[in-house]
Design a binder for these strands. Sequence first.
RNA 1: GCGCCUGUAGCUCAGUCGGAUAGAGCAACGGACUUCUAAUCCGUAGGCCGCAGGUUCGAAUCCUGCCAGGCGCGCCA
Length: 556
Amino acid sequence: MIKQHVKQMVLDAARTAHAAGVLASDDFPDIILEEPKIGAHGDLATNFAMAGAAAQKMAPRKIAEAVVDHITDPDGLIEKTEIAGPGFINFFIRPSAWLPVIQEIHQQDMAYGTENLGDGQKVQVEFVSANPTGPLHIGHGRGAVVGDSIAALLDFCGYRVEREYYINDAGRQILTLGRSVYLRCCQLAGQNVEFPEDAYQGDYIKDIARSVIAEKGQSLFDMPRDKAEEELAGQAAEQILAGIRQDLENLGVCFDRWYSEQTLYDTGKVEAAIAFLKQKDLIYEHEGALWFCATEFGDEKDRVVVRQNGQTTYFASDIAYHLEKYERGYDRVIDVWGADHHGYVPRLTAAISAMGRQSSQFTVILTQLVNLLRKGRPVSMSTRAGQFVTLSDVISEVGRDAARFIFLTRHHESPLDFDLEVAKAKTNDNPVYYVQYVHARISSICKKAADENPDAQKSPESADLQRLSEAEEIALIKKMGKYPEVLSGAAALMEPHRIAYYLMDLAALFHAYYNKHRVLTDDTKLSTARLHLVVAVQKVIRNGLKLLGVSTPEIM
RNA sequence: GCGCCUGUAGCUCAGUCGGAUAGAGCAACGGACUUCUAAUCCGUAGGCCGCAGGUUCGAAUCCUGCCAGGCGCGCCA
């Protein structure tokens, strides 16, 4: 808000200076105001003079002088301006000018920070979408948390968001699942059968087999093997999916819709999608297979949609799926994938262009791999031996809040070292507690305040916020004033980690303040003002943590 | 070989639109609890921003080339 004001003041000043003949050109650059890293450079600074030097044919410092000379500031927002370095104009804002931020936070409360970026557009975020052939691992956890948080963020910023999980319950991997369970059943029944390498090795298959044997007993072997495998496949997939759902729930991740790949086949949508592309003349036959002309849309080669043997590829159902997404009316579709699928991006993007969609309507977020460590040493994750630490193991060991926060304190495209011991530590190694502690501390203050003076918190309007003049107080208020900007930046770039870092910064300012000053003092009016300040801090922390899916404890 | 991602303090990581003197936490060292929660705070120390060029008033940030690590290059999913 203040930023906008100052921006306008600079522009007005430049215009006035031009009208007065001090500036030669009225071709002004965009006015960019930034917060200098160093306090001595003021609260806000602009490079306006440097950026405009070419058009004005003047030395930057001369331009800066002209602007500063023509600034009018009726509200007395600015305490001081100065021209520095190569031509920066630095603005020092009168500290009390920041105070209205507190009222704003109290008024908007849960909605503080909202910016209507989405304008009601419908967005679908599809994430996790792991095959129901085994339990989730930590990499899925990262995708789950990043996807969930992006969805929350977009939701908060004016999009109508739906979260969706795509279930790959068709195709070969499901058949393999059925066969794996069947063979384990045979072994349990004492039959001497080979368990092939390409079957699923994990112990969870044995567990499923045990439950099958317990339920069906010998009757399993009375039916034809094909039939048995098919039935077991469905049963196993269902059981595994239930486990996946439970794991995600434990992580605080819920979906609006679970979409089955098989239904795309059952309802003829895969065929329809191929027919659709055929009709656009984008499908051709070659060596007995059907190919999609992906190269026409920027992919490096054409891709098979129907194999020589007549079976469709995964790509074919994915085309159908995404076609269906847009038919459902989403303005934007966001897919969150593991980085090991990045080679697949151009192909699907090509298909979506072929559907006539704009590139802005489709975004793939790739999350990089997670290295699971314990005390700095890699935890062995041998899938072949069937020995791996599952997501479920990790969550029950370190807890949901810590797990989520760790996933969200890295850019999603950076590889992530997840150290189980660090994740459990209740120290500043683990900043989630650092942030939550702010919330708990303020709760504690409020409780005490309520005991001492029940009226103090009731009417924010009555508080004399002018009493807030300590440097730490102004720093906190300024920081909170930036929250909406941080959010819209995070939403626009789909980078929730920005919120996490913001919260850590805000938490640091609060803890410093807490250690230096008392909120509740003998001076009732001062206490009331400070109480309103810290409750505002608590609200910002709460709003931020909510977007990250992290809880806000009253007591720690 | 080609493509994508990553490379910033001893370790784990931030760094927006190119901005002024490079930012946290951990680890190290020295301090602060009779107080609203010490899961906290204050201070010290720590840098060839992978390397080399280029663009410009100005580069960790943009461009080119190289180096290192990860991932991907199926009629698999």
